[in-house]
Computed example of a mutant assay.
Amino acid sequence: MKRRTLLASGAAAATLGLVRPGFAQGSPLKVGFIYVGPINDGGWTQHHHTSAMEMKEHFGDAIELVYQENVPEGADAERAMTQMALGGADIIFTTSFGFMDPTVNVAAKFPDVKFEHCTGYKTADNVGVYSARFYEGRAVTGYLAGAMTKTNKIGYIGSFPIPEVIRGINSSFIHARKANPEVEMNVVWVSTWFDPAKEADATQALLDQGVDVVLAHTDSTAPLAVLEKAGALGFGQAADMYEYAPEPRISSIIDNWAPYYIERVQAVMDEAWESQNNWWGIGDGMVGIGEITGPVPDDVKAEAEKIRDDIAAGSYHPFTGPLNKQDGSAWLADGEVADDGTLAGMNFYVEGITGSIPS
């Protein structure tokens, strides 16, 4: 595990009273990143780090980039953020949902440091939040999954039962049903973002249930490796994972954080940074759809690309009624679009998905 800028021990922090070095005029701005996984995970963390490196290339010597990978969510995250702030970081990006409370806690101790938390919702004067509208991308991959299944059973590997993941499951299922009204979805929860062994086991469990197309909201390429051996289909997650194309990977959801990182670091440099809640999607370039490859028929590919383009243009929203909740109660009337507040706190399945959401 690489540890950068861990310049003060817990004892030193107590001695210093959580006082950090000030930003010296003319010195590089120190930009920090806290990662939940390894920077070579092939997915989530790797794409955050790739985007951070693009940001570094953009600014050159005007910034100093520091990071720590493999930081568990919880108390370890708070320690890592504290040490990074003590090491002189001017802005720290914390890149996993479970870093939310540690980010807010540490930010309160370092009011002069700017914090940006990815996929969370808690803000403060020096804490902003940002996320991608992944559910937009999952509308496209869900449609492809529904169109490509031969068993009428698709599977979804869920990491944690948070709104972001639940939105993805619902969007995938809604659009799979648009392609194939007979499709069923099985969900397996693994309670981890990155654990190749668990992800592989979950994939095999879905295959054993008759699933032949799998969508994943976890970070490694393990599901695609299992699908390749089984002759089943899947998708790249967070990264293109094109090394598995044309089969089993038939497309992908690609995260592109670099423009956001550049914008927010520039705001710090300009002394114009303010706490914001930013939620960008396909139209903003933060969510990309990888090339559609493999056995996808031309008409299916064209419809999937139309969904992508209509979302980007703002002429279509993935959560447009009529839609009911899982228990059959009405949610969205015909033509009604879900508001961001409901989506941000989504804690229910839509009608047609079986099983329950873990508490």
Rank of each mutant, 00 (worst) to 15 (best):
F173K: 04
S275R: 00
S315M: 11
L16D: 10
L215V: 09
D299K: 08
S27V: 13
G60K: 07
G234S: 12
D334P: 02
D284E: 11
N70D: 14
H49I: 05
V104M: 05
M55C: 04
P295M: 13
T293V: 13
A338W: 05
S252V: 00
I254D: 00
T103E: 02
A77V: 00
A75K: 15
R167A: 04
K150C: 08
D201W: 11
A24Q: 12
L332H: 10
P196H: 02
F194Y: 13
A312Q: 00
S159E: 12
A13I: 08
A330T: 02
T94H: 03
W44Q: 06
A14V: 14
G74P: 00
R249D: 03
R79A: 06
D298T: 14
V104I: 11
D270I: 04
A338F: 00
L224W: 01
H48I: 15
A202R: 08
S275T: 01
F99T: 02
W279N: 02
A258T: 11
P72F: 04
V265T: 03
G288P: 03
G37L: 12
L323K: 02
A89M: 02
E116Q: 12
K56R: 07
L224Y: 01
A80I: 00
N186F: 11
G355N: 15
A176S: 07
A52S: 11
I282C: 01
G142D: 01
A216M: 13
I262F: 01
I91V: 14
V127D: 08
Q326V: 13
F110M: 03
S315W: 08
G146E: 15
V337M: 02
Y242R: 13
L332N: 05
G352I: 01
P38K: 04
S27K: 15
L207V: 12
A197C: 04
G345C: 12
W280D: 10
T95M: 05
Q204D: 14
R79Q: 10
G236K: 01
A302V: 03
G285W: 05
V113A: 15
G328R: 04
Q46Y: 09
Y130F: 11
P111G: 13
A147P: 14
M1D: 08
A239Y: 07
A205W: 06
P223L: 01
Q46N: 06
Q326S: 15
A272K: 10
V36Q: 10
F348V: 07
V190G: 05
I174V: 09
T94L: 01
E228K: 11
K56E: 13
A267Y: 04
T149L: 02
E136C: 02
L332Q: 07
I357V: 07
K2H: 10
F173I: 07
T5L: 15
D310I: 02
D255S: 04
M1I: 12
D61Y: 12
G98K: 03
H117Y: 11
S27L: 14
G294D: 09
A230S: 14
E271C: 12
A304G: 11
M185R: 13
S191D: 13
I357S: 06
E164G: 09
N277A: 13
F235S: 02
K198Q: 12
D76E: 09
S171N: 04
A12S: 10
N40K: 14
